[in-house]
Structures are given as structure tokens and as C-alpha cells.
Design a protein around this nucleic acid. Structure first.
Lengths: 282, 282
DNA sequence: GAAAAACACATCATTTCTGAAATTAATATC
DNA sequence: GATATTAATTTCAGAAATGATGTGTTTTTC
């Protein structure tokens, strides 16, 4: 997808954009298709900057002009994502020396930048949607699956009905069929996008359920389909992305949900603790 | 905590800071104590802005002056941080307001302290044991299970035989019987201790396998039984512990293992990516 | 209490940002 | 194919931001 190309370019330089440029950047991150669908003027208006700024912006991003960027984007979309991966060589991104201190610095950056970028109204909206859900469906494929487990482990301490998808070898549609409009979906969509996730989010919307997604910044999967999207930074120094920031965000999210639910959550926690005691776990 | 006060204020207005101010903001988020410890000039230098900018920054944040802000911060620290928290009661530890900024500060502390506490020889020993293992057994119960998934997801990209315990409904002893002295156990033992973990580590030792454990500071489970123990800090502000630091450590560990294995790891990663492509995953 | 350091405040020169308006290119319409 | 229309780009001037410098005040430190 071509919009990923722009999003990525944006993120590379995001930290030293001017304020107007940042408004534009935010706009494109939130609406990855905007460049393809709208004119420079509309975009400028939408992002609340002048046309001049929009024009300059694309030059600054390395394109010869807005027009060219748009053309590239449109072409890219047309040919579809025909195997043209953005990370041309996905393997050794950077041959980091892998010093522990560097890793720490990198993850701290991830944390800070992630929290900076999350708007508090988005966060509280996410919390509310999860708190008042009847059931919560935690969904994630591939590398996200550990996060699924993780989110469920926290949430189950606080709410009684947390389901995860995919589960064991069970068929997804059959499982997911029990979703209702009183439920909320928590979509973990970091990294590689899957069509399954897309389908599920569409079904969720169809069923009238709320959806909260946690994505990295590049991934557009679910961004448009979820009601709230919390973007996390996952830059790793070497082979792997780091999920420290998403984990931190999820922890906060669950904690906030627990606090929102309040009394009920506390009792449930106590109850769980009792069971542990009865079973003689130390 | 007083520094959280500033962090909070920073996050509130972060979106419309200028670039130099953002550099300052980042600096303070990354070094919450900086305001208390350093002079305006040092801070300016550190954040790579002029003194004038630093002065203006604090006015813009609503303080009468830099000096006042510093004084307030210092005062806050003295009186505020007196009480050390105890984790005796697992349920409502502290009725934190759960502000995002506090959470960020807390997780950064966790990260920093964790990395500080890990000796580099321990780490490299752990890496070596994992890198040269024939099979790796990733083990963890309860809340650790997400970490198990997580570690396996990373390691399987680099080595061909990573097993996890517990698995599905399979009986642990039957599974674990295939361990040999050429294997390495990666024990994830944060939080509640289980006797199962203890038993497994004993069996591993009996079989002559190496064991690396990742624990929190409280848990002694496996500390004595593992050859290397990496301690992580998991202090959470409220109901839940935060696993951000363990995740970060595991990420580093896996990355280091990958680098140590080198060529083979890179090829395996490429191979996996090819399969993804063949399957048409974007 | 004197010297030194840190700071507040004001001023000014530069640089950078920004939007409005003018210009040019592209596209549609007849 | 000429013209009307719209979109994109460039120009330009004002605004904002930034850093440098200088001066007087407060705070430390000895």
C-alpha cells in the first residue's frame, strides 16, 4: 500500500517537523488515504494549514512536488501491494552493535514518543469503551499473539468475559459469531497486516460493537475501522521490533479500565487472590 | 512525585510546542529529575537549546519563571517521596489517579533500574547459553505465559526448535522428558511462584541443561536453580504490575542471540519472510 | 560579607515559519 | 484548438521562534 510509504517517511522525520507540518503529518497518519482522495486545497483545509505549507511539506519529505507525491500514491494504490514491500530488505535493518545501553535508550524513546503521541481523549474513550463492554474480544495474529495473551491476562482479572481470537484451533467465524453490539473489540495490530484482522473488524462494526485498536504507526490496519486507535512506537535497533511501548500502553489501559470499573474490579481481584490462596499458591 | 507534575503539564500541551521546546520537553520526559538536579544552563546545553529558550519554556508552561519551577520541583521532592511503598496487599495498592504521565514515569523508572541492575557478564552469559542451545525450552506459568509466547515468537525467528511449557493441555512431564544436556531453559518467573517451575528447573539441572531465568526482584523462584538470573523491575502504579521492562529485556536477549548466531539467523529471517510473501501476506 | 555563580529580563539580529496573494501548470469545456 | 476553470506552485512580507549579548538581581559558596 502506497500510503504506508508516506506514513513511513513521515515517521522518519516526525520529530523535527514544524507545528503546521505536524498538523499535516497527523492528518495523514490519521487518514492515510487522504493524499489519494483529496486535492491539496482540501487537505490543507482539513489539516488547517495553508496550501503553501502543504506544498512545502511534500518537498520537505523528499518528493519533487505535491502533485508527484499524489501521483506516486495513486499509482501505488492501483498496482496494489503487488509484493512491493516497503522494507525492501526486511532482515538486517541496521546492524546495531546491540549494546544494552543503546537498547535501553531506544526503548525509552519508544515509550516517551508513544505517550506523547497518544491524545488523552482517545485514551479515555478507549478506556470507557472497554469498561462498559459486556464481553471483550481481544484479537491479534502473528507477532501480536503474545500481546493478546497479555491483554487478556490483565483484563480477566477485572472482567468476567474476555475472549481471544484466534483460539486454539477453533474456527474464527464460529467463535466470533457470538459478538453483540454490547461488546468491545480490542484489536492488536502491530506490524504485518492481515486480512483476517480487517475482516473481523468489519464484522464487528457490522454487529455494532465498538473497536479499539493498538497499532504501530505505520500499520493502517484497523486504523480506519476502529473507533479509537492508539499508536505505539516499536522501533528496534536491530532485528526485532520492541514491544515495550505497546505493553506499557496495554498495562495502562487495563489499569485504567480497572479503576473505572472500581469496586467490582477490586472485589474480583480479591476473589481471585482467595482462590490462589485456597489452592496453596504462595 | 513532583517530576510527574511537570511531565503531566508537558504532555498536556505537547502538541503545540515549537521544535526547540519539544527538544526540551523530550529532555524532561526522559530525565524527570533533571529540573531538580541541574541548572538552567546545563539543561539548555543538554537539550541543545539556548538559555533564553529554556527560560521562555517555563513561562509558557505556566510557571512564573524557571527558578520558581525549580523551587517548586525541589520542594515537591523533599516532602513527597517519603513513603516507600510496600507490596504486601496485592489488591488495591494505591488509588493512583492513573495519569498517563505518571504511568510513563513509572515505566521509565522500571526500564532504567532494570537495565542498571543487570550486569553485562550475566547478560552475555545468558545470550551465550541460549545461542548455543540445541533446543530452547521457554517456560512460564500464570501471568508469565504471555511472556512465554512473546519470547518464543522472537526466538523461533532465529532458531528452529523452541518449545514452550506448558503447552495446550499436554502433560508437562511427558513433554519435558525430551530435554537433553545440550538444551537451555529460559524460565520466566515473574510474580507468583509456582512449585511447578521449581520442579522443572530441578529436572533441567538434573538433565544437565543450562537455565536462564527472568524474574522480578521479589521472586526467588529459580534464582538459585538457574545458572543466570536476570532481574526485572515490574512496579506498577496501581492494580497491575508492568511487564514493560521484562519485555524489553527479552527483546534485547533475543536480538543479542540473533546477532550472536549471525549468518544463520539472518538467513532464517529471510526465509520466513519469503514464506510470508508466498502466502501473500502484505 | 565578598566573590562567584546562577538567574531574570531586556534587546537585538537571524533564522525559520506561515499564510495570502500572485503566478504558473493542468484540465475541462465548448 | 482556444478559452474557462481549477489546482498547484512560487513569491513575498509579516509573524514567530531562536539564539546571542548585556545588565542588574538574587542565590551560593567560601
Amino acid at each position: 500500500m502506497s500510503s504506508a510509504r508516506l506514513s513511513e517517511r513521515i515517521l522518519e522525520v516526525f520529530d523535527d517537523l514544524t507545528r503546521a507540518e505536524r498538523r499535516l503529518a497527523d492528518h495523514f497518519l490519521a487518514n492515510p488515504d487522504s493524499l489519494v482522495l483529496h486535492t491539496a486545497e482540501e487537505i490543507s483545509c482539513e489539516a488547517e494549514v495553508s496550501k503553501a505549507t502543504t506544498a512545502r511539506f511534500f518537498k520537505r519529505m523528499g518528493f519533487p512536488s505535491f502533485k508527484t507525491a499524489q501521483r506516486m500514491a495513486r499509482r501505488g494504490v492501483e498496482e496494489g501491494d503487488g509484493g512491493k514491500r516497503v522494507f525492501s530488505d526486511p532482515v538486517p535493518r541496521r546492524t546495531g552493535r546491540g549494546e544494552l545501553a543503546d537498547h535501553l535508550a531506544s526503548d525509552m524513546q519508544n515509550l516517551i514518543r508513544t505517550i506523547e503521541a497518544i491524545r488523552s481523549d482517545e485514551m479515555s474513550s478507549a478506556v470507557m469503551k472497554l469498561a462498559r463492554a459486556d464481553k471483550i474480544w481481544v484479537i491479534g495474529f502473528g507477532d501480536n499473539y503474545p500481546l493478546v495473551h497479555f491483554a487478556r491476562a490483565q483484563l480477566i482479572k477485572v472482567k468476567p468475559d474476555i475472549r481471544i481470537i484466534p483460539l486454539g484451533g477453533f474456527s474464527v467465524p464460529e467463535e466470533f459469531a457470538s459478538i453483540t453490539s454490547a461488546d468491545t473489540v480490542l484489536a492488536l495490530a502491530i506490524g504485518r497486516r492481515t486480512r483476517m484482522m480487517r475482516s473481523i473488524l468489519q464484522s464487528a462494526r457490522l454487529a455494532g460493537a465498538d473497536a479499539v485498536s493498538i497499532t504501530d504507526q505505520v500499520s493502517g490496519a484497523g486504523l480506519d475501522l476502529a473507533d479509537v486507535a492508539l499508536r505505539c512506537r516499536t522501533n528496534g535497533l536491530s532485528y526485532f521490533d520492541s514491544l515495550a511501548a505497546p505493553v506499557s500502553v496495554i498495562t495502562y489501559l487495563c489499569m485504567a479500565v480497572a479503576e473505572r470499573i472500581g469496586q467490582a474490579a477490586a472485589e474480583r481481584l480479591r476473589y481471585i487472590d482467595n482462590i490462589h490462596s485456597e489452592w496453596g499458591d504462595p
